[in-house]
């Protein structure tokens, strides 16, 4: 049988089964918490109760299955610590997702909207918006996501700009944390952290090494590690069995593909 001639749709079936079977019959693989995830956890743990963080949902709906568990874990931990949250979004699809997530966790944590958390919503032209937040949050966002005047919120009466913000966390599936680093971090000196899709981790690791990014966690694996630190099982942990078996399947397929290639080349 010539392996090079196999219909590629069989590969899709194999990968799907490698993902679906561990979801149906969990193995319960437990991974170690990486130092990178631990750093993010420690960063939020070190913030004093009553501090304010900006959490920006800079992601599209398509990447939510991956980035959502990251956002869930970070928001849950932030609220557990009694830290106030200002939510924003610079990608339109992330706006409603961020609001739904924050609302759900706020209800569970007895957070009062306007006092403990505010959702400012979407703003196009993110560079101008990031810079505007450094001058005046209420001027940049005269009204919040639910159309309330921003000046009416007690939280925004006390937190006027980055000067009053302890940390910015960008939940991103693309390069948005770079703009936070350049325009909020480098210009206003506010600390930046990121919850990223795995594909962006290598892009932002150099910023972590240079200290421009305080911490980052990446992808479903990062979410699973963070859930472990929070002492609960969530979407991240549930996905680890499937991810591990799918990785194994892909490794086997890569080996088979290479063997087939070199055998074919030898014959020719």
């Amino acid at each position: 049988m010539n392996l090079a001639q196999i219909d590629r749709r069989w590969i899709f079936v194999i990968v799907f089964l490698a993902v679906a079977l561990p979801l149906l019959f969990p193995i319960g693989l437990v991974g170690e918490v990486s130092p990178r995830t631990q750093t993010m956890h420690d960063l939020i743990e070190a913030l004093p109760r009553g501090a304010t963080v900006i959490i920006s949902f800079d992601c599209e709906a398509a990447s939510w299955p991956e980035i959502g568990p990251v956002a869930e874990a970070l928001v849950e931990h932030t609220m557990q610590r009694g830290i106030r949250i200002i939510g924003t979004s610079f990608l339109s699809e992330g706006t409603a997702l961020g609001f739904e997530l924050l609302s759900r966790h706020a209800d569970a944590a007895d957070y009062v909207q306007g006092r403990d958390w505010v959702y400012l919503g979407f703003r196009p032209q993110y560079v101008a918006a990031i810079l505007g937040l450094g001058e005046s949050i209420t001027q940049e966002y005269p009204r919040d996501y639910i159309n309330q005047p921003s000046e009416d919120h007690t939280l925004l009466g006390a937190v006027r700009s980055y000067r009053d913000v302890a940390l910015v966390i960008s939940i991103a599936d693309d390069t948005m944390p770079q703009y936070w680093i350049e325009y909020a971090g480098a210009r206003y000196g506010v600390k930046i952290a990121a919850g990223l899709s795995a594909v962006m981790v290598t892009t932002f690791t150099p910023y972590l090494d240079s200290g421009q990014l305080q911490a980052l966690i990446g992808g479903l694996k990062g979410a699973a590690e963070y859930e472990r630190l929070l002492g609960r099982e969530g979407a991240g942990s549930r996905g680890m069995d499937a991810q591990s078996s799918a990785h194994l399947a892909i490794i086997v397929l890569v080996i088979i593909g290479n063997v087939a290639y070199f055998r074919g080349r030898g014959r020719s």
Binding site: A62, P65, E66, V199, G219, A235, A246
Partner: peptide, 15 residues
């Protein structure tokens, strides 16, 4: 990391 990322999306939809 890209493979990991794309698989995460497949896992989310399969789940």
């Amino acid at each position: 990391y890209t493979i990991m990322s794309r698989l995460s999306l497949l896992i989310g939809r399969t789940e």
